[in-house]
């Protein structure tokens, strides 16, 4: 749960591969200066969230610190054109819906409220059930008063899922549109498809794995026990909405991006590439090793090998010989 919360903040769109944190500005609005894969946006302070909640889930609105595109460790900017604006209340989203694995048994919840969330693009839904209340990402047709169910049972024959309900991938028929797809069948894994108006499609079943086509057409082979919610995410018309003014843009924490004109180089332009082969996500990645803090001496910082590693004042006439009496 803890690491899920930690990851939840940073993962708004698909990220692949390890992203090295650097002390120089490497990204613009979550996109790297080179390449196409989005980077962590560093919008909210995950540690502050962890401290406030103690790692427990809460449906209460929270006042989480905003990082303004800065690295949480060094405090330096890693993400350009992000920062400032109004601090909105933060709602924790539960991306991992788990239900009973027995056949026919479901965990039912009622939708109490569907509302906008300034912190993410899709609408969010407050649901209440036997175990309490939680916020979920709302699918297109979710309305207050509806009952949604969650089942963890892997059916023999694939089902045609009902929108808003959550099933294991292995239970859903090919062609089903899904969102909030777990990468691994663990409750702390990141999820695919959280952006407003998007959905992944189930392509085929292969033994213990299910091939899912994400909105950007890449295909992933995920374990069939990974949970997913049926339907397309709400607020699809966000693409057509505009902030209306530069000032409103800034209120939401985005800074203007105008500056010195740079001529486009060869990295720009349309890329016509073949889709990569299906990527199989079978084992969760190892957790990152704990961070170490140490200080290097000037000699170590020089990076020179043994003989060349001389004193930094040697050029200025510093010698090792003893001073005459």
């Amino acid at each position: 749960m803890l690491s899920a919360l930690r990851r939840e903040m940073a993962s708004c769109t698909l990220r692949m591969g390890a992203v090295a944190s650097s002390n120089v500005v490497v990204a613009k609005r979550g996109l790297p200066a080179r390449g196409t894969k989005p980077l962590p946006r560093n919008l909210w302070d995950q540690r502050d969230l962890q401290e406030q909640t103690g790692g427990e889930y809460t449906h209460q609105p929270l006042r989480v610190k905003r990082l303004g595109g800065r690295d949480a460790d060094t405090g330096r900017k890693v993400n350009q054109h992000i920062g400032g604006g109004v601090k909105f209340d933060y709602f924790m989203i539960d991306f991992h819906r788990r239900g009973p694995t027995e056949e026919g048994a479901t965990y039912d919840e009622r939708i109490l409220e569907v509302r906008r969330d300034p912190n993410r693009s899709a609408h969010i839904a407050l649901v209440a059930g036997e175990k309490g209340k939680r916020w979920l990402l709302a699918t297109e047709s979710m309305r207050a008063g509806q009952i949604i169910t969650t089942s963890g049972h892997l059916t023999e024959n694939p089902l045609i899922g009902i929108e808003g309900n959550a099933y294991p991938l292995g239970s859903l028929a090919p062609g089903t549109m899904v969102n909030c797809v777990e990468r691994y069948p663990t409750a702390d894994s990141e999820v695919f498809v959280v952006k407003a108006g998007t959905a992944a499609t189930i392509v085929r079943h292969q033994g213990d794995f299910v091939v899912v086509k994400l909105p950007h057409k890449h295909e992933f082979s995920l374990h069939r026990e990974c949970m997913a919610t049926v339907g397309r995410l709400s607020h699809a018309d966000i693409e057509g909405k505009i902030f209306g003014s530069a000032q409103m843009h800034r209120r939401f924490g985005y800074k203007m991006s105008s500056g010195l004109f740079h001529k486009k180089d060869g990295y720009f332009g349309r890329k016509v590439r073949a889709l990569p082969p299906v990527r199989v996500l079978d084992t969760p990645p190892e957790p990152a090793p704990p961070k170490q803090q140490f200080t290097l001496t000037k000699a170590q910082l020089s990076g020179l090998p043994a003989a060349a590693k001389m004193h930094n004042l040697m050029h200025a006439g510093y010698t090792h010989r003893e001073y005459p009496q």
């Binding site: 009622r110 209440a128 059930g129 009952i147």
Partner: peptide, 9 residues
Amino acid sequence: IAPLSPLID
């Protein structure tokens, strides 16, 4: 009030 539990609040 199913499926809510009366104790959740």
